[in-house]
Amino acid sequence: MTATFAILKRELLTYFVSPLAYVFLGVFLFLAGVFFYLGIALTGEASLRVMMGNVSISLMFVLPMLTMRHFAEEQKTGTFEMLMTSPVSPVAILVGKWLASLTLCLLMLLGTGLFVAILAYYGEPDWGVIATSYLGLFLTCGVFCAGGLFASSLTDDQVAAGMGGIVLLMPLWLVGSASSLVGEEWQARLDHLALLPHLRSFTKGVIDTADLSYFALLTFGFLFLTFRTLESRRWR
């Protein structure tokens, strides 16, 4: 627990003492701002639904860039060796890093609170829907951070880790719109794998245990794979 927290603190410190986190925050808030503005300008609705869908897709590209250094850089600079020779289980390291990127995500989402304030000032948003939307987006962040970590654990090249993360996560988006390739029948099945159909429940105000388990299991799966990769880096 102490170790997880130590790693979480260290990662956050690293984020915030380098310009990296701020650039990310800036880029993300700008993208989200574009989607938010377009959403309300085109539909004239006091809601974040248009933004949520688009933001989740842009996170798919942004978050692997955020997590790419986690293991790749540690492998490269040798700090990974220090972590692994400390009396700390790999799981604690993994969870610490995952929580660190998730904390940054939380800050990013907190930044979009301005949008909610704008909606509340000019209109009457549905607070229940906004709350569940944010929950859904946060869970999405959890999946993407775990996937990005997995990609990062596979290589010691940061750029490859970032790109790999995007390539790894992309199918979660693409399988949701493959109906023209595989037909309606299979699309219905693929929708179980796709991220957006699960996120959609949240963005319309519904919390479904099946959707919750989708996000939880996917996150766990990626973290588990990362764990196995870290282990295997020692014997391969």
Binding site: G128, V129, T132, H192, K204, T209, A210, S213
Partner: peptide, 19 residues
């Protein structure tokens, strides 16, 4: 996931229970 998909509980938090 398969089990969760078949035994789901849904909670609508939208203010007018639109869903």
């Amino acid at each position: 996931y398969g089990v969760a998909d078949r035994n789901r509980a849904r909670f609508d938090f939208s203010s007018d229970s639109a869903n």
